[in-house]
Amino acid sequence: MHTCSSSSHHGQPQRNKHKNTMRKMCPNFDREDALETVLEVPIPEEMFSGLGNNVALRWQNMATWMKAQTPDKWSSPIIAGRYNEMSFLLYIVGSPILPFQIQVDRAIQRAVKHSSIEASTAKYIVQQYIAATGGQPALNAVNSMCVVGHVRISGSEFHQGDENVKVRSNHDAGGFVLWQKNPDLWCFELLISGCKVIAGSNGKISWRQSSNQQRPICTGPPRTPRRFLQGLDPRATANLFIEAVCIGEKIINEEDCFILKVDTSQSTLEEQSGAKHEIIHHTIWGYFSQRSGLLVKFEDSRLLSLKTNKEDGDVFWETSMESVIEDYRYVDGVNVAHGGRTAFTVFRYGERSANHKRELVETWKLEEVDFNVSGLKPQFFMPPPPQ
């Protein structure tokens, strides 16, 4: 964490006026008489209160933690192990990226001529969703976005075989900031329990980096983070599911919903695969309320094969996710989900040892949503320089 705020580079946009439960300012640790500084990623009160029994001790502990974020400290086995654990959680839960680039059209229209009944039904459902989230003019009026929120992540350890997995009762709390500028520029910063990950797209490549990495990892062409599709970016959601097929109906939280399904094409899967891994399938489902037209659940399933040099054969990772989306509110005429809960299941199998399973749960809540933020320049979305 740095004491320089990303938001200070772009001015202070108008914020939603609802209760703020995030810490944004901290004392200057080098000079007591200096002005307070702005935290790069706001900290939820829940995380701050866990740093000590009183305010002075909490700030002292935070100062100690901040000064410990140096490369020489990462060589410690304890700290390195913690970072590896949190990096796994952050990449799987906090900042996963969808396997393809979503084209953000000015008008979300697709011809229904020559379409199957399932495909034409999906297009009709998407048009109802566009109307429910504010209508085409309101969505087209958005050219940039800034979101501040907090998360809680809890999870189990890896368990063997098919035994039941119990998620820990304790959890890790953190905060995040998400910037976006159409069409393919975005930057996501997540700070949780002393670990940080940054992910983004500069319009040409997608990248990500955690606190203990010297260099950002480039992950191919610009792609969309899953978080946009959890009720946050209706236009991206509509453009994703306009190519879907309707496969049936299901009741979700007492809501009758249509189910739309999107399968990643074989050519896209091959593009995303590499010399040491192969993406076998990646499928996405959206559940749209028949009553409100809104997206109330989002599912994602991916199977990845890792090639090994052993005679045991390949190792397979299967990640499935179910995200329930709630608390829709209008911001500048756009209906945005302000909260939700996501359950993840990670399977690892194919080794000579027993199969392993792990479950993770993330609960998130948005504190601030702002559209059309002035001052966002393309340079802001570039990968950070090597440390």
Results as ranks from 00 to 15, higher is better:
Gly94Phe: 01
Glu311Leu: 15
Gly333Tyr: 12
Gln213Met: 15
Ala337Gln: 05
Arg106Asn: 14
Gln69Pro: 00
Met1Ser: 11
Ile217Lys: 08
Gly50Met: 11
Ala275Ser: 14
Val369Glu: 02
Ile108Asn: 05
Arg291Ala: 14
Leu240Thr: 07
Ser154His: 06
Gly200His: 09
Ser206Lys: 03
Leu35His: 08
Pro216Lys: 04
Ala111Ser: 15
Arg23Val: 14
Val112Ala: 12
Trp207Gly: 00
Ala173Ser: 14
Ser8His: 03
Gln387Arg: 15
Ser193Cys: 02
Leu89Ser: 02
Gln209Tyr: 01
Ala354His: 12
Gln101Phe: 01
Val315Leu: 14
Gly155Phe: 11
Gln379Ala: 09
Phe371Gln: 01
Leu190Arg: 06
Thr121Pro: 00
Arg341Leu: 10
Ser169Thr: 12
Tyr349Phe: 15
Asn16Asp: 12
Val177Lys: 00
Val147Trp: 01
Asp300His: 09
Glu362Arg: 09
Gly174Lys: 07
Gln266Phe: 08
Arg302Met: 15
Gln69Asn: 08
Glu368Cys: 04
Ala122His: 00
Gly134Ala: 06
Thr363Tyr: 04
Gln180Glu: 11
Gly200Asn: 05
Phe371Asn: 01
Gln103Glu: 14
Leu294Lys: 05
Thr308Pro: 04
Ser49Cys: 05
Ile217Gln: 12
Pro96His: 04
Ser7Glu: 14
Ser211Gly: 10
Thr133Gly: 01
Arg341Tyr: 01
Ser292Val: 07
Gln127Asn: 13
Phe100Ile: 13
Gln290Glu: 13
Gly274Tyr: 07
Phe176His: 01
Asp312Ala: 11
Asn53Gly: 05
Ala275Lys: 15
Phe316Lys: 09
Ala56Met: 07
Ile279His: 04
Gly11Lys: 07
Asn335Tyr: 04
Gly81Cys: 04
Cys26Pro: 00
Gln272Glu: 15
Ser210Pro: 01
Phe88Tyr: 09
Phe258Ala: 12
Leu376Cys: 06
Pro216Phe: 07
Gln60Trp: 13
Ile130Asp: 00
Gly52Ala: 09
Glu318Thr: 03
Gly175Thr: 07
His338Trp: 14
Arg31Ile: 14
Glu32Leu: 09
Ser154Met: 10
Gln230His: 10
Lys181Cys: 11
Ser144Asp: 09
Gln214Thr: 13
Ser273Ile: 05
Ala238Lys: 06
Met86His: 06
Arg302Ala: 14
Glu311Pro: 00
Pro383Glu: 05
Asp327Asn: 14
Phe288Pro: 00
